[in-house]
């Protein structure tokens, strides 16, 4: 069964998406990780490929069990000051939805 698309589940899925892109974020520590993401800027060194990887991982994680959500095919825009928390608010929350 698909999980309900609420804030808690969405944050959990986002942690898994970050883990999938191999950024050292442990999904089991998602509660601890989130306050930290607010101040962590996406490194410039990741900008080239990271939007593609994020979208690929979002497709992979969110459309599969246990979530079963739909994902718009939109890569995030990364600015010099974009934090991982910004990505959650401005990108991830908007592309994930329930059919």
């Amino acid at each position: 069964m698909a999980r309900e698309l609420n804030e808690e589940n969405r944050k959990e899925a986002y942690c898994k998406v970050l883990a999938c892109t191999a950024v050292g974020a442990a999904e089991s520590n998602c509660d601890k990780l989130f306050p930290k993401l607010v101040k962590v800027v996406v490194p410039q060194s990741l900008h080239e490929d990271y939007p593609v990887k994020l979208l690929a991982c979002a497709n992979r994680i969110c459309t599969d069990e246990p979530y079963g959500w739909s994902v718009d095919p939109q890569e995030p825009d990364l600015g010099d000051d974009t934090t991982f928390a910004d990505l959650y608010e401005s990108w991830f929350k908007k592309i994930v939805w329930q059919l």
Binding site: T63, D64, G68, V71, D72, Q74
Partner: peptide, 20 residues
Amino acid sequence: LQPRVPIKSDSGRVIGTTTV
């Protein structure tokens, strides 16, 4: 947009994905 969406079985399990 052409988003990726899950295909679900009668029991509600995800058995694949498609686009709409």
